[in-house]
Computed example of a mutant assay.
Amino acid sequence: MKCRCGRKAVFHSRVYRITLCDECFPKFYVNLVKRSIKRYGILKSSEKILVCVSGGKDSTAMAYALNELDYNIELFHIDLGIGNYSKESLKAVEELAQTLNLNLNVVKLEDYGFTIDDVESKKVCSACGIVKRYIMNRFARERGFDVIATAHTCEDIILFFIKNVLSGNVEYISKLSPRIDGFDKLVAKAKPLFERTEKENATLVLTLNLPFTPMECPHAPNDIWKEIIYEIEAKRRGFKQNFVRGIVKLAKSVKAEEWEVKHCKICGEVSNFEICSFCKIVERYSRKNR
């Protein structure tokens, strides 16, 4: 196959009915991200943006696109202390920062007295999510960032939607908007890649030879729902992106669960309870308390 410019193609999409080469695809990808941001008001040109990078392909693609669009960004990485996976992830984000000539901020979870490897296996994913949300938000607020950007893909959005509908947590759908404005001590959160697929992100980083680690987190579960999502996409091209756009429309109409804003009596961060989930995790797994 050949690109519309006549060169050898590296990307073909039935959804967009387009075939692109290694020079045309990155421009096409960045324009898609730009269109999403403008259409849904995900980011503002005046904002200082903390771009969260894990070392994987998706966050690498996001960092590249936002940098190309000339947003005021800095990279942010949390070293979770997950053996060789975290070492390779940190190496990848350090190389990415050099490649894109961006400032990289790194927080090591071990500075709080524990790592994700210290958490019991059945609670790893839950604890990891709590840890990342807490540290991202606190770092962003204390360093004067206006918004936190995460690389959630359309597959991630659909997966979250399905799991929460099946578990009856319908009110959580409101969190699937591509931008959630902040309040109190919570910084605004943005998902610039919510319409982008994992395949598009992988094609971008491989085409541009951007630094990333192909390693999967050793604690990540095998998710049958993601396999089902891909099976449907194979039979119905465009399913994922059409579905996620529908989810975003629904998210606007779903009333978020009302709760009294409290502050953790230990750290002072926003919490539903007297002691926030993060401080409970620190109390339970910190080596200082053993």
Rank of each mutant, 00 (worst) to 15 (best):
S45M: 12
I42M: 00
S54P: 07
S86L: 12
Y71W: 05
N67M: 04
I82T: 06
A92P: 07
L69P: 06
I78D: 13
I82E: 14
I42L: 00
S86H: 09
K44L: 09
K38R: 13
K38V: 12
N67E: 12
E68G: 06
N72P: 13
S54K: 08
Y64P: 07
N72S: 15
E88I: 05
I49P: 01
K91Y: 11
L66V: 09
S46D: 14
G55K: 03
L43N: 00
G83A: 08
I82V: 15
M62C: 04
H77F: 09
M62D: 08
N84T: 15
K48Q: 02
L66P: 05
I42E: 00
Y40C: 00
L50M: 12
N84A: 14
G55H: 07
V53T: 12
G81K: 04
A65H: 01
L75S: 04
M62P: 02
L43M: 02
K38M: 10
Y71N: 05
K38Y: 12
L69N: 10
S45T: 09
E74P: 04
C52R: 01
L50F: 08
Y64R: 02
S59M: 14
Y71C: 05
V53Y: 04
I82H: 00
N72R: 14
L50S: 05
G41F: 02
E74W: 03
S54W: 08
Y64M: 06
E88A: 14
H77N: 10
I78H: 08
S59E: 14
L50I: 03
G41S: 06
N84M: 13
S45L: 05
E47G: 01
Y85V: 04
Y40A: 02
L90Q: 14
S46C: 10
G56L: 10
F76I: 07
S86D: 13
F76R: 02
I82A: 03
K91F: 15
N67L: 02
K87E: 15
L80H: 04
E88P: 03
